[in-house]
């Protein structure tokens, strides 16, 4: 478990194949690991290191740099209340306090039922709907205590399942395209073009 197997492994290999250098797939693979397990497990990081040709310490170094990549388990829904300036000016800290009250957990914690993790986040570019929040990176706003409560209830009841997949699933649209053109082939195209250019000049 936690290493990529079956379909996840073939998706992982496809991601690696997209780039001229396999290491570029590191972050997409971390997202894939989160889709599989909800967070990036140690086993997944070790496997990613094998797939892209880095050391596990390097994959960890990368993964631990980014806020979205969780190295510890989180709830099914990670709720991030934005408190950056635009939201703050429109009541974000009050909303955050309300959120703590509604979920009955402090910022950074996960509810006992494992459903919600509450975070305070930096600007999510939803400032025209301030104060705003994201649930697994799906955006909501403007929110107040009442609408936040409603949101939580809907999530709990599964009313938003279509809109908000469990934490870790980022893209539900998969790449549908022919295999990436090998760089060598592109190199040849470009060289031919340059030749043609030279001839026409």
């Amino acid at each position: 478990m936690s290493r990529f197997t079956g379909e996840m492994l073939s998706r992982a290999e496809e991601l690696v194949s997209l780039y001229p250098d396999p290491r570029s797939a590191t972050i997409p693979l971390c997202h894939l690991a989160q889709e599989q397990d909800g967070y990036v497990t140690n086993e997944a990081m070790a496997h990613i290191a094998e797939l892209v040709g880095s050391s596990a310490a390097e994959v960890q170094g990368t993964a631990s740099f980014y806020d979205m990549l969780k190295l510890e388990p989180v709830g099914r829904y990670v709720i991030g209340v934005c408190t950056n300036i635009a939201c703050m000016l429109r009541g974000a800290y009050e909303l955050l306090e309300d959120a703590e009250g509604v979920l009955d957990v402090p910022v950074g914690a996960t509810t006992a039922d494992g459903l919600f993790t509450l975070e305070e986040v930096e600007c999510i570019a939803h400032c025209d709907r301030a104060p705003a929040a994201q649930v697994n990176y799906r955006y909501f706003g403007p929110l107040d205590r009442e609408s936040f409560e409603t949101l939580v209830t809907q999530l709990r009841n599964g009313d938003l399942d279509d809109e908000v997949p469990p934490h870790g699933t980022l893209l539900r649209v998969r790449r549908e395209a022919p295999a990436v053109i090998p760089m060598e082939e592109i190199d040849r195209y470009r060289a031919q073009e340059a030749e043609r250019e030279k001839a026409s000049d």
């Binding site: 880095s54 960890q60 740099f65 980014y66």
Partner: peptide
């Protein structure tokens, strides 16, 4: 050539 230590965090 043994990157067994690296930075973590930010």
């Amino acid at each position: 050539g043994e990157p067994l230590i690296d930075f973590a965090g930010r």
